[in-house]
Simulated assay, not measured.
Amino acid sequence: MKRVVILISGGGSNMVALCRSMTGDHPARPVLVVSNDPDAGGLAKAREMGIATAVVDSRPFRGDRAAFEAELLKPIEAAQPDILCLAGFMRILTPDFVNRFSGRMLNIHPSLLPKYPGLHTHARALDAGDAEAGCTVHEVTPVLDDGPILGQARVPVRAGDTEETLAARVLEQEHRLYPAVLRRFADGDRRPVAL
């Protein structure tokens, strides 16, 4: 059984979708949810599901990513993860951290990569007049939002869409895509999932 640690910064809706999926004959189980924000709503949701939580507040480490990551590694390594899932974790990780978990760390990003890495993806898709948007699950590499793509889900852009309406429809697909990719990945299958 693969051990999964999930990193969050906010409400944790993707974390909840992942944890709910890891039951029955699923090859993985959640063992820890870690947040860089002590007020992240996802922490309470994880505890309600009986999953251990840890907080490493990033604020005291402003300007010193190496020191923050040294603290972040402590609860993660104690949990002995086989897989790390970034689920709305809003910190950019250093190459040293990423390389430590090379081939074992996943992220979900709210665009059809390689389009729109970074922030404000929905606004950028709307500004560009794109006919579709979506989300991508990829392996994490030292280059931001650039690792091998493990799955994508496409969402049509509708007339009159705002950032908020588009984001809400993309998020629905994130909650389907990320669990599907994790299940396949935990089985050792890196073929991309398309929804």
Rank of each mutant, 00 (worst) to 15 (best):
V98I: 15
A125M: 06
T141P: 09
L86N: 01
L93N: 11
M105L: 10
L119D: 03
V140I: 13
N99H: 12
S102Y: 11
S111G: 11
F89S: 07
D130W: 05
P95R: 12
L106H: 03
A131Y: 03
R104T: 03
L106R: 04
L106M: 04
A131M: 10
L106S: 03
V143T: 14
G134I: 04
A133N: 14
D130A: 15
A87P: 01
P81M: 06
G134K: 00
C85A: 14
D145R: 04
A87H: 01
K115L: 03
H122P: 10
L112F: 00
L84V: 13
L112S: 00
T141L: 10
A133G: 15
A79C: 10
P148F: 06
L106K: 02
L112Q: 01
P110G: 03
L93A: 12
L113S: 01
A128Y: 02
P81G: 06
E139T: 04
C85F: 01
H122M: 15
L113A: 00
G151N: 12
I83D: 04
G129L: 01
L119G: 04
G88W: 01
A131H: 13
L144K: 08
Y116W: 14
M105R: 08
P148V: 07
M105W: 07
T94N: 14
F101E: 09
P110A: 07
G88E: 02
D146K: 08
D146S: 13
N107P: 06
P95S: 13
T121P: 03
V98H: 13
G103A: 04
R100T: 14
R100K: 14
D82T: 04
D146C: 12
P148L: 09
S102A: 14
T121I: 02
Q152I: 00
L93H: 10
D130Q: 05
M90Y: 09
D146F: 07
A128F: 00
N99V: 09
G88D: 02
K115G: 00
L86H: 02
A125I: 01
G134C: 00
P117I: 00
P81H: 07
A131P: 12
A128C: 00
L126G: 08
C135Y: 07
L150H: 07
D82R: 06
R91S: 14
L93C: 11
G147T: 04
F97S: 11
P95Y: 13
Y116G: 03
V98G: 12
I83F: 03
F89K: 08
L126E: 05
V140G: 10
D130Y: 03
E139R: 11
S111Y: 02
D82S: 06
R100V: 11
G88R: 03
P117N: 01
F101M: 12
A79H: 06
F101S: 09
L119N: 00
A79P: 09
N99Q: 15
P81R: 07
I92T: 11
M105I: 08
P117H: 00
P95A: 14
K115V: 00
T136N: 04
D130N: 12
I92R: 13
G118I: 08
T94I: 13
F101K: 07
I108L: 06
L150C: 09
P114T: 00
P95F: 12
L126P: 03
Q80Y: 06
E132N: 08
N99M: 15
C135S: 11
H109W: 01
D145S: 05
P148A: 15
A123P: 05
I149H: 05
C135Q: 07
Y116C: 05
H122T: 13
V140H: 10
C85H: 05
I149V: 14
T94E: 13
